[in-house]
Simulated scan of single mutants.
Amino acid sequence: MMRLLALLFATTLMSCSPETDGGACGESFCLPSDARLLSKRTPVHDFNLYDVEWNGVRFVIYEGNAPDEGEGAESILSLPLDPEAKLRRDNERGSVVARMRPDWPNYLQINGPCAAGDQCEAAALAKGIIRR
């Protein structure tokens, strides 16, 4: 019985609503169907960290109210999630911060490789993420 309840809970957590074409989901978003959710961590009660693999590349996605401000050059990146998302690049790494909701979680931050604007895997993944 406990295994069945755990399976039902995991299925609810990791599946999107029927009207979406996405893959595994977090609280406020769903990944593209070809992305793989490797793990979810909740180090403290007010944010989640997701380890994701997409196109052979690893990413960390932050979901919460206080994304890392970070360093590096910043530009606006228009996404389906947020037409005024911010892309920050620093030393071959990228961070995309999208505004999600007026309440928790306010933000989604996608961290991953980002060599240049046209070779930014973090931005490419962010474009495929949909709002839950």
Rank of each mutant, 00 (worst) to 15 (best):
M1R: 11
M1N: 13
L5A: 14
L5K: 11
F9N: 04
A10I: 04
M14V: 08
S15N: 12
E19K: 10
E19Y: 09
T20Y: 11
T20M: 08
D21P: 00
D21T: 14
D21H: 09
G23E: 07
A24Y: 01
C25Y: 06
F29G: 04
C30A: 05
L31Q: 02
L31D: 00
S33R: 14
D34Y: 07
A35W: 07
A35Y: 02
R36S: 14
R36N: 11
S39W: 12
S39H: 10
K40Q: 14
K40H: 11
K40G: 05
K40V: 15
T42H: 10
P43L: 09
P43Y: 02
P43M: 06
V44W: 08
H45W: 14
H45A: 15
D46F: 09
D46K: 01
F47T: 00
N48A: 13
V52S: 09
E53F: 00
W54K: 01
W54I: 06
N55F: 06
N55K: 15
G56K: 08
V57F: 05
V57A: 09
R58Y: 13
F59I: 02
F59G: 04
V60T: 15
E63D: 06
G64T: 07
N65A: 06
N65M: 03
A66D: 12
P67D: 06
E69W: 04
E71C: 07
G72V: 07
A73Q: 14
A73S: 13
E74V: 15
S75N: 09
S75C: 04
I76M: 04
L77C: 03
S78F: 02
S78T: 13
L79A: 01
P80T: 03
P80S: 11
P80V: 01
P83F: 03
P83R: 08
E84R: 14
E84H: 10
A85D: 07
A85L: 01
A85V: 00
A85F: 04
K86A: 10
E92G: 11
G94L: 06
G94P: 06
S95F: 08
S95R: 14
V96E: 01
V96Q: 05
V97K: 07
R99N: 10
M100Q: 08
M100E: 08
M100L: 15
P102Y: 09
P102R: 15
P102W: 15
D103W: 11
W104M: 08
W104V: 05
Y107P: 02
L108D: 03
Q109W: 01
I110N: 01
I110H: 04
G112W: 02
P113K: 11
A115Q: 14
A116G: 09
A116R: 10
Q119D: 15
Q119E: 15
C120E: 08
E121L: 12
E121P: 00
A122F: 05
A122M: 04
A122H: 03
A122E: 02
A123S: 12
A124S: 13
K127T: 07
K127Q: 11
I129P: 05
I129A: 03
I130C: 10
R131Y: 05
R131M: 07
R131S: 06
R132D: 07
